[in-house]
């Protein structure tokens, strides 16, 4: 990239993620995507709410869910949202190494979250025989929560890709928008999780 001085300026602008037209477009494009994602998750939430009492004689949400695990998962994902804020803070201060460090921590927290989710599903399937096919409640639950887990997995792959690809490049106007769009996406995953732990787990426990 060193031949292109427009992307490697002498002094970094104050908002490197929105300094180029491509950066602005990436920013708008991601928000447009998130608007669509909101509707997609809403359709899964609507389905879940409509079918959550159709247990077909299987375990109900009150019997199934354990709040300890969900609490730990929530804390992990909330904290990973903060660490990605730290990463963007260092991006704006043009400190590439610290940005990479905080992105790395974000990724590890995301991985821990995902591992707990896999453990949770394994626990339901093995100890309760509660599967995707056991009832309408099961199908709706695994589709909604699994779709969110899939988003976490996709986010982790995305994060790894941009961290590895730009490891030697340092921060410039070409990749700053990429890091920024990732961080917005990661916050959105947390937004969805806030509704999942509220609507699925907490409201599932209340009845």
């Amino acid at each position: 990239m060193s031949h292109d001085h427009s992307l490697n300026p002498e002094t970094m602008p104050h908002n490197p993620e929105k300094a180029t037209l491509e950066g602005k477009n990436k920013f708008l494009g991601l928000w447009f995507f998130l608007g669509g994602e909101t509707v997609l998750f809403a359709s899964l939430f609507g389905t879940y709410l409509a079918l959550k009492n159709s247990t077909a004689g299987g375990p109900s949400s009150e019997e199934l869910f354990g709040l300890e695990l969900v609490f730990i998962m929530t804390m992990l994902l909330l904290t990973s949202s903060l660490t990605s804020v730290y990463a963007m803070y260092h991006m704006k201060n043009n400190d590439f190494k610290k940005m990479q460090l905080w992105l790395g921590i974000t990724g590890l927290l995301g991985l821990a979250f995902l591992s707990l989710e896999i453990y949770e599903f394994y626990h339901y399937i093995h100890d309760y025989g509660f599967t995707f096919r056991s009832s309408a409640f099961g199908s709706a639950f695994y589709t909604l929560v699994g779709f969110h887990g899939g988003h976490v997995l996709f986010g982790l792959c995305w994060l790894t890709a941009i961290m590895v690809r730009n490891a030697k490049r340092g921060l410039n106007l070409y990749n700053a928008p990429k890091f920024n769009t990732f961080s917005l996406y990661w916050h959105f995953i947390d937004v969805v999780w806030v509704f999942i732990f509220t609507v699925v787990y907490l409201m599932g426990k209340v009845g």
Binding site: S2, N8, E10, M12, N94, K97, K168, G170, L171, N172
Partner: peptide, 11 residues
């Protein structure tokens, strides 16, 4: 590939 990590630090 220039490493420009330390150029143009914010004031």
């Amino acid at each position: 590939m220039a490493n420009n990590t330390n150029t143009g630090n914010p004031d």
